[in-house]
Design a protein around this nucleic acid. Structure first.
Lengths: 272, 272
DNA sequence: CTTTGCTGTTTATGCCGTACACGTAGTAAT
DNA sequence: ATTACTACGTGTACGGCATAAACAGCAAAG
């Protein structure tokens, strides 16, 4: 039932009264301001001037409303295929795009559960992220793993950010002030040698930008894998994947044996 | 008030009746079984055979109970300083240790908020993680950033795991079955070229182990940074940090100028 | 004119955390 | 022995949450 809502066109907005679109918009505004925890059916209904239960005529329930919100917010597409500047630039650019969306709508990172069904825009984003790694020597499952890793990284950083911000706003006390006021911790600091050493050498004075730092490390790590795959790319048999003794001279070998060459030939013919 | 509870010794367990220790134990059992969402003061009290409100005589509230639970679970210390096998082996080993704890107590990764005050064991863990990177050429703020990054990575992976497991247990349907039954998605797959390409090439048949894959990439990325720092280590002035022309012969220079050498000398004397 | 379907409302159920007032027992001070 | 004080457990109550079920108004269709 939510599936239809997710995939259907948005033309049919009635002139007045409630509609899925209006409910989703109000809910997004609310979640932007108060977070996903602060999003309740009552508040959404109040904001629209209707009773709580009226929402259920248009949206199956709270969870599905969140699904709709997520897809709505993903409308902004990533910058169209930034040329061919290489996988690293492309992957970095989609990661930054995801980061930008999450800064505008912090509750995105708060959505929990692995079985929420994605809407067209969410799938498009996923597809685009995967596409940044085509052309690299990564295996399909590695491409998927990389994209999952980067996605979870962005969510984790967004979660960290939204929580510090929310707590600062709610209490009016900045993060540094709050931790500075936890005297009891500092009194016992001598029991923790590394922390106190880093403390005295000013490690907390100018902290790294958490997102930038993590993204750089992550991309470096992915690059290391891709380089490794690239090196051994021509040393693998294209058919069975086993290592391959390179030809000592002339045209480099592609198959490890006559048998594999033949298997590949048959497969090529079957495909057409 | 919770601070005292967190840091005080655990000797004073009364023979009968309630106590913080018993409440925390019951709460941990409950959260292990039902997750952090399923943890409620009522259920903890029922499990112990008391009324809900009786808990509040020993524990300030739900949030603080969770703080106590976290520290209790962190009692298991990481394997004592596994020799000196290099930072990479040490960091990997603490990451795996954190991962092991989170597999036993998945709700650890569900704890939200940046201002929860850590107990002695949590601080000890943090200190130990930081200590794995001493001796590397990383700056203090980089050490802190690396540890934060790895910590958030472990939490993100644990969160993913606990959610899939919980949803499988609750519905009795495995993750693959569930996604397999979302036909409507597969019908529209042709709109998404990369996904369908990866699908047909079997990228989802044998997925990578998410934790292992991510940890390897992360460590590679960190290694890249450390190598870079190592290279330029001797090319920095120890006092002011600016690049340093290496001596053409003989003992390598440490300071960029006579002024910096003198500043460092005075600082050394003041310290003692 | 009645039936049907869409929309919004009302009422009620069962969770949750926790504030507050109360009882009851043990202990120390008068 | 009486008093006062403290620690501990209980019962009731409030406001918040999601949502099930019955109901009311209105339009188009039969």
């Amino acid at each position: 039932m939510t599936e239809e809502l997710l995939w259907r066109r948005r033309e049919d907005e009635p002139r007045q009264g409630l509609s899925p679109g209006r409910i989703v918009s109000a809910a997004i505004e609310l979640a932007d301001a108060e977070g996903l925890e602060g999003l309740s059916m009552r508040k959404v209904a109040d904001r629209l001037g209707f009773t709580t239960m009226s929402l259920y005529r248009h949206v199956p329930g709270r969870d599905q409303l969140v699904d709709l919100m997520r897809d709505e917010v993903m409308t902004e597409h990533p910058a169209d295929h930034d040329g061919e500047r290489g996988w690293r630039a492309r992957l970095e650019s989609v990661a930054r795009h995801a980061w930008r969306i999450r800064r505008r709508h912090p509750w995105l990172a708060e959505i929990r559960g692995t079985r929420r069904l994605p809407g067209p825009n969410a799938v498009a984003h996923y597809d685009y992220m995967l596409s940044t790694l085509t052309g690299t020597a990564l295996t399909p499952s590695e491409v998927i793993a990389v994209v999952g890793l980067v996605g979870r990284f962005v969510d984790a950083e967004a979660l960290l950010l939204v929580e510090t911000q929310r707590e600062e706003r709610r209490s009016g006390v900045s993060e540094e002030e709050w931790w500075g006021a936890r005297d009891s911790l500092y009194e016992r600091l001598d029991r923790y040698p590394t922390i106190s050493h880093l403390w005295t050498s000013g490690g907390w004075n100018h902290p790294e930008d958490s997102f930038e730092f993590g993204l750089a490390r992550l991309l470096d790590g992915i690059e290391a894998l891709i380089n490794k795959r690239d090196e051994s790319r021509d040393e693998m048999c294209e058919e069975c994947g086993t290592p391959l003794k390179p030809a000592t001279s002339g045209r480099p070998r592609v198959y490890c044996s006559r048998a594999c060459q033949q298997r590949a030939y048959r497969k090529r013919n079957k495909a057409t």
